[in-house]
Write a protein that binds this DNA or RNA. Structure first.
Lengths: 133, 133
DNA sequence: TGGTATATTGTAATCGTTACAAAAAGCAAC
DNA sequence: GTTGCTTTTTGTAACGATTACAATATACCA
């Protein structure tokens, strides 16, 4: 609770109940929702929340590195409450998205010479363990 | 020239001059253009080419694995004439995109147990060698 | 407790992309 | 070649996700 406020404040942003609600929800739901999904999920508890605010907030949070943007399908943007570098596995059969840890050094070793990595996402498509049979 | 036709035909697709033009252009321009960029580039030589055809064609080619879709900025889709698994480095300073080879085995070793990788993209943001100074 | 900068809201606009129906072109069989 | 059927292209109109904007409300520093 307190930590979320601190995170937001430490970016020089004002603390509002909308920002806390959205940030909190993203942190506690390890799915990769669109802005619309976040909005619909919070609407019962925050009936006045506008979709525009959700868009504004996730953009601001992502800009400051508190959350991440993820592209699963090109035509819609998704968000991830986990701001650390990690990979996403997308099962083309059941459409599930699985997070996985990545080995930063081995990714860095693949980069063109002289490039400095700041943010890194590994996106793999295929079949998950359940669908693989 | 001939090979492009073969590629298209081997997917069960009809060979048209629009498809050859778009596929050929993508193969020979190692940039990561949007549909709009491809369209504008080909318009002088193919004044009747419609933007809709570019969209249709890149979607069909990508479906059959002849090209790839790449997401650099979430709000627009880009295409890549190289259909092989490879990584993209995006320089946040000069906006340049560099391709790099990826080590498939080491990426596979990061995946959740039992998952079968079919397509893989590593996307890294940071500073390129020129901007790093 | 005020005053001011920042955030939220709702609506309207924008942008990239796709749906659709008519016209054109590919291609296989004759 | 020519025919006929199927696929592709085209242009326009629609669509959906996202953003711009101006008015209102809120956070927070003095």
């Amino acid at each position: 609770m307190e930590q979320l406020e601190k995170d937001i404040r430490s970016c020089g942003l004002r603390v509002t109940k909308q920002r806390i609600a959205i940030y909190d929800w993203l942190r506690n739901h390890p799915v990769h929702p669109t802005a619309d999904v976040i909005w619909k999920a919070l609407l019962p508890r925050y009936p006045d929340l506008s979709l525009t605010t959700v868009y504004n907030t996730v953009n601001v949070l992502a800009e400051h590195g508190l959350i991440r943007t993820v592209t699963i399908r090109a035509e819609e943007q998704r968000f991830d409450g986990n701001p650390a570098d990690h990979g996403h596995f997308y099962c083309r059969s059941c459409q599930k998205v699985l997070d996985f840890d990545i080995d930063k050094p081995s990714v860095s070793s693949m980069l063109p010479a002289g490039c400095i990595a700041e943010k890194c996402d590994v996106f793999v498509t295929g079949l998950c363990d359940v669908c693989a049979e």
